[in-house]
Computed example of a mutant assay.
Amino acid sequence: MNRISESLSGCVRTLENLHLRYDADVGVMLVQVDQMARINNSAGTAAGDAVLDEIGRRLESFATDEFGQGSRVDRIDGPRFLIVPAVPLSLGALRAQERALHVALAEPMVGDPKGRLAIRIAAALIARDEPVVEQLRTASDQLARPASARDGAMVMAALSRGEVVIHYQPQYDVATGAMSGVEALLRWQHPELGLLGAGPLVTAARAARLERELTEHAHHVALAEIAAWPEALANIRVSLNITAADLGDPEFAERFAGMARQANVDPARLTLELTEQAMLSDPASAAEQLAQIRAFGCAIAIDDFGTGYSSLSLLARLPIDYLKIDSGFTRTIDDSDRDRIVVRAIVDLARALGLLVVAEGIEKPQQLERLKELGVATWQGFLKSGPVAGDQLPGLLAA
């Protein structure tokens, strides 16, 4: 396996040697991982490092398979990687591999089970007659620079072409094991790269200030599908995610209620999930919108609970029904006394406030046993099922 370096020096020498050996310009690929701050904040820097290590391993495997032995992968700056093929390749040849590389990195991984990471990939040509370090820095800076106009065009094209799809991750009753609900998760059916996680599209929408448009479109898609589900799924609750941009819109609750009525979906089946951070971005507006949503008949859940800075008084004042424990706490609940104490404290807090608890990120039977001991009501995770298309849910219900 190739060594992943933390500096530019190794790959600079490799590129200079390729220039000398082949007397040719050398094509490279740069990869940037977005949304790492979310993982570091929610699950800790160790989990973030594990994600980057896994990405590094996937990049090394990809480089060896596609570009040959001797290809090099360098981690050059935080969540940014550089691939130097073993032999000089043209920009066209590298760009032809971008789709395969996206696919290699698209599978969910420990630390990012919902596939929220956004991966940016760019090919660059390193000329043999110009300083290598400066060229690499320029290419790296261009990859990191926001491109709102391009991002906006990409989001609007995805919406107009119907590329936004919804997958559903089942939620199970801890006591009985029965499926009791699902969380609706956005996916991007890219015309060239295939099915991608939400990360790339959400990141682009945020940069282009199109978050509300993307969320509304995803809700339209999900509500239309829910309305068409068979009778076997009639009692399954559905959680839909909302953002700080939604809560900051004074017309959001009324507009969502109108969409649900038009789709003929019973609001009592729906839960709207928001993160602690979204709730805190504008508490007054959030309280008003959440009160309207509750009055319409939907439940409210705080997602990734324990990773933000919400006050107990705010939790007591807002109309909340569920607390979802972040996977950063549940991942090591079977062997970490500290995480068990945190989860127990959250369960006790929820019980005192009259709230139910959902545990995310359950991947091992031992975690599930701990949840039973701690009195958690509901769980979701890859132990039973990751996110699936809606037409697969009846089969999982019967399993």
Rank of each mutant, 00 (worst) to 15 (best):
P79V: 03
R80H: 09
A93L: 13
Q97C: 11
G115E: 01
A96H: 11
I76K: 05
R72L: 15
A96Y: 08
P79D: 06
G78Y: 09
P85S: 06
A100R: 04
A86T: 02
I76V: 15
G115H: 00
L94E: 00
A86W: 01
V110D: 13
D74Q: 07
L89G: 05
L94A: 00
V103H: 14
V103M: 10
E107N: 10
R116Y: 10
P108H: 07
A100E: 04
L105V: 08
K114Q: 14
E107Q: 14
Q97T: 10
V87N: 09
P79I: 01
R72S: 15
G115L: 00
A106Y: 11
R95P: 02
E107T: 14
H102Y: 15
R95N: 15
G78C: 06
A106D: 13
H102G: 05
D77K: 12
K114A: 13
R95C: 14
F81N: 01
V84P: 06
G111D: 01
P113D: 08
L89R: 15
I83V: 15
D77N: 15
Q97L: 07
P108E: 09
A104Q: 07
E107Y: 12
P108S: 04
R99Q: 10
G78L: 01
F81K: 03
E98K: 09
E98F: 10
R116M: 11
L82C: 15
V73L: 05
S71Y: 02
L91P: 00
G70A: 06
R80A: 11
G78I: 05
P108L: 05
R99P: 07
L91H: 11
R99Y: 06
E107K: 14
P85Y: 09
M109S: 08
G115P: 00
P113C: 07
L89T: 10
F81P: 03
V103E: 12
R80L: 06
G92W: 04
V84N: 10
P88G: 07
P113K: 09
P108T: 08
R95T: 12
R99W: 07
R80P: 01
P88C: 08
V84G: 12
